[in-house]
Amino acid sequence: MSEKQRVRGRILPREKGAAPLDVVIAVMAFLAALALGASMLADRQAESWREGLAGRLTVQILQPEHPTSSRNLNTETEAALQILRGTRGILTVTPMPDADAAKLVAPWLGADAMVKDLPLPRLIDASIVPGEHVDFAQLTARLQTVAPDSNVDDHTRWISRLQTLANTIIYAAYTILALIAVATAAAVSFATRAGLEAHHDIVALLHQMGAHSGFIARAFEWHYLLSTLAASAVGAGLAGIAFLAAGGLEFAGVEPVPFLPPLGLNPQELVWLLAVPLASAAIAWATARLSVLAVLREIY
């Protein structure tokens, strides 16, 4: 045997019975990483919904009941456009052409010539400078002085509903994440304690030989930190591969499920999955340390 093998054998044996516990830790880490990834997907989706609707407003101008040459749909629309363009914080103002408005109602009313005779309202789409605040109440009041039958829709109702939906999804994902994190912590802690139980004789002997509590605790801390890190890295790594594969499917042109966000994680999000093995290793470290110190306190 070489000199290197002879000296500095590990104070703790690499236990053979630990494999099932390592598997449990790897599986829990896999589930925790999936939950973490899912919560990031939900968060990202909610953000994209918010961004899609926020920052836009739609002005609808109805046909006056008694149009005159000076007060009709065209003059009111023109006046509204002037006001919008002159409003601070409005970026773009685009009146919707009549043809497009007709298309919107076509699914219900058909595309007959008759539809052209209907008093369809005019729609104006406006976008807001990002970060700029527009006082909608004041804007509505000003628009109504030139077009009494107008109204402004800032999509608040939709946004708040989507926000509620997105928050529900995010909180559900966080709850699942928290539950799995607790279960993972319990599994890691249990595995560490079970290992310590098996090594009670070694702890007692080292103590008897005059090893400081810190020395003994360190031997155990490193042992469990490294084995837990390895097992949970395998689990989180498999979850990362699963997310990459999901992203790959979309990239390969597989139809995404309607209403579901894309399931792939981007590189910045994948990096967050590293938190799972790191947190697991930290839990194992702390459990091992506290358990060893508790055992040593019981020995004279």
Binding site: R6, V7, G9, M209
Partner: peptide, 13 residues
Amino acid sequence: LPHLSAFDNVALP
């Protein structure tokens, strides 16, 4: 310690 060689056992102190 059963997992350590005779050498390592003696060297422990």
